[in-house]
Design a protein around this nucleic acid. Structure first.
Lengths: 199, 199, 199, 199
DNA sequence: TATGAATGAGCATTCATTCAT
DNA sequence: CATGAATGAATGCTCATTCAT
């Protein structure tokens, strides 16, 4: 009735959607997309079952919203990287963040990996993944060059492969896989061990 | 008039199971385990829906049979590798075969990758994957040492990560990913370019 | 606009469950447990097929709910019996009610009989039947003694056998079986013909 | 080719059908008609699955053949009874045989009871049961009269009810039910305790 | 006669989605 | 905005029956 109602409603909407997205991320990552039901997400989120189609129209709509959420998260990281003053700082930041994401944001990592494999079934995913992959040289080649690394094209390719390999092995093998050794290898290889980064 | 001989029956059984396993591999790889229905597999295989439970009891039994098929295939490759006379020959064989498997047996590759991510849901998969991973040092460390490669532990770890990374990138990106460049990098790095292998 | 109150929901739930229980009783009694499908029950009840597993989880859960319903009904009758002031009144009440149940609640009678025969397959049924049977002497022996009936143990045994025999014959033979004659025989035998009962 | 072939075939046919009928009786009695599959019967009988529809056309045809088998068995008993020289001898024979059938041919008893309850679904059963029931007075009334039992109509009715009651209680309660006490009660009541019967 | 592979209708159950309140 | 009862299509699986040999 009063003008602030619509603002309040908007806040309620945002809060409900947030709860649903968090629950969906958690369960999709834990059990996979198909093995997770709308009911389970509703229970985990503490909302009524009917509220999920209400906000996200379909189950696929929900997973696309989760993907967009993850992308926004990645973009924020990139912004942070760009704030590092030197090329080597940026490089170290990227490596540190990649490894820390793999270890600490296991759920995001797992979800993104398993959605990537279903790239043909989630159009949004194809768009996002191909876009990121193709944008990479433009973004990182100058950085590797500026950092004085030889064969930067080959090196960028290799770095991408290694990070993806570490990511998937950590999902599958967990702590049976000595992830820190790979990180140290990379930092030593690119002579980044003494480089300071700011968070 | 007389009933078919048990040898005839066995042949019929083998042929039907083969059709089902091939169809299952294809569809599980394409669309994932949960998104593939028994009906779809039956249609793809050209058999009646009821024949699949008849032979594989449950859907999970079917996926396990597909995994066992893939494992047997991998073991056959390993036997072949052991026939190479020199350590460098074995190493080159492994690398060549890994890359060729990634490119040419896309379906197996995709299925194994996506099942690996669901390792918690497929006990058979955990067993297979952990077994292979833990057996690797014993199998390959002597080989790397004999081939005169420095830091063999670190190198084996890295090689595993790179091959997994290439595998997953090829699934996701297909030919957008210059897979040959990574292979050449590895062959050059381990000085295998001139090594002959026999097939 | 506002969601239904939990009281409203509860009423809706009760009404739907009632419809399902009634339809299940009817069809289970008519055709037997295994020969009755969830679909048929849903059609008879006028609800969607999916609503039955929603409320009763499994088909066996449904039959157990039907049994519990029948048991509650039997217990209510027993309460009524205990309100008769004299032993002979109680006895007459039990006999009258048993015969009237056999005739008028043909469905319950038939269902309980056919489930009793499948006692090994329905644990709930075993529990209920054995409980009732073993509780009988404690309940009825004093009553027969108080009513001055000689050989009460033998007589109770015989009475049970006769009532079960009448029950099953009435199911199988229907009105071809002169049920009233047996009732009169019993009333005469125990000298209950002049005893008043209150309903 | 030679003339005796067809006779041999007939013997083989008889043997196979016998094995199937015995297995069917056993499993139908144990688990019920619907819960028993043709496959299970074939395994129990030690024949191929396809042989059962070959001989009995449908599953219902099989159950009807089992019923006919049971009827033939009952008729043989009746023949035996008629060989007893006195009315009391015949009466005692019937009672003894009924109780011994209940205890020792538990399977027949159970199967016939559960089929009787499904009388509407097995036309053969209705025919058999009603026929036997309606033939009973003609068969047994003269016998009771000759044995000097008062109120023979009422007594025959009661005897039928008691035997059916004992039958069903023994199925449901097994040895928890003191079946011998009922038998002794009947023998005493009809003064048959000293009557000799020949087997 | 006997075999068992093959079929496909039917089953119980799951679950995304709709909708009255 | 939020609820959860209701729907019905789709799933994995069972099993009576058919049929080539």
């Amino acid at each position: 009735m009063s003008p602030r109602s619509s603002k309040q409603f908007e806040e309620i909407r945002q809060a409900s959607q947030r709860k649903i997205l968090d629950a969906a991320l958690k369960l999709f990552a834990e059990k996979g997309y198909h093995a997770t039901s709308i009911s389970q997400i509703a229970t985990e989120a503490g909302v009524a079952k009917g509220l999920i189609p209400h906000y996200f129209k379909t189950k696929e709509g929900l997973v696309q919203a989760v993907i967009e959420d993850a992308v926004a998260h990645g973009d924020a990281l990139f912004e942070k990287m760009m704030k590092q003053p030197t090329a080597k700082g940026k490089l170290r930041f990227v490596i540190e963040e990649a490894f820390s994401m793999i270890v600490e944001e296991h759920e995001y990592n797992k979800l993104l990996a398993s959605l990537s494999l279903k790239i043909d079934q989630f159009p949004k995913m194809r768009e996002v993944v191909m876009g990121k992959y193709e944008g990479m040289p433009q973004l990182f080649l100058p950085l590797l060059q500026e950092a004085g690394i030889p064969n930067p094209e080959e090196e960028l390719l290799l770095l991408g492969v290694i990070l993806d390999g570490v990511g998937i092995q950590h999902i599958v093998l967990g702590d049976a896989m000595p992830i820190e050794k790979i990180k140290d290898y990379l930092l030593k290889k690119y002579d980044l061990e003494q480089v300071e980064i700011k968070h």
